[in-house]
């Protein structure tokens, strides 16, 4: 049994190239890009924050003025009620103290004509 002579040869088309280069996958943007990006995002955020603070101030001003415009109205209503109760209390005091000589109903304990809110409130 004899085998015919055959020279061993490279595969047709040749050998593939030797993989000697390092095969590292792409690791994302570089450090400077990340730093720049975050700086940009933060700058925009602080800009919005500043804008928002200015707007919040204006919103607060709006709220305060809406209340200021209503103060006279509410105070007038409250005053009428306070006056009514004050007069009722005075009448009551007059009735109770009618037998006491020299009693001045509704007189202040202070020697001062200036109005002060009553310390004792009967609703």
């Amino acid at each position: 049994m004899s085998i015919p002579y055959r020279q061993d040869m490279p595969p047709p088309g040749g050998f593939e190239a030797v993989k000697y280069k390092r095969n590292l996958p792409f690791r994302g943007p570089g450090a400077l890009a990340i730093l720049g990006g975050i700086t940009a995002i933060c700058t925009y955020g602080f800009y919005r924050l500043g804008k928002g603070n200015l707007e919040k101030r204006e919103l607060h001003r709006e709220k305060v003025w809406s209340r200021i415009h209503l103060v006279p109205l509410l105070m007038a209503e409250g005053d009428r009620d306070a006056y009514r109760r004050q007069q009722a209390a005075l009448a009551r005091e007059k009735e109770i103290m009618k037998d006491v000589k020299g009693w001045v109903p509704g007189s202040s304990v202070y020697n001062n004509p200036k109005y002060h809110t009553p310390e004792i409130v009967i609703l």
């Binding site: 103060v71 006279p72 109205l73 105070m75 007038a76 209503e77 409250g78 005053d79 009428r80 306070a82 006056y83 004050q86 109005y115 809110t117």
Partner: peptide, 23 residues
């Protein structure tokens, strides 16, 4: 007018007229 009246005197009986106008 009402608030000026109240600044004059805080007595609830003092500004009833102005208060009625406001209401």
């Amino acid at each position: 007018d009402f608030m000026l009246c109240k600044a004059e005197n805080r007595d609830p009986g003092h500004c009833l007229k102005e208060g009625r106008r406001v209401t």
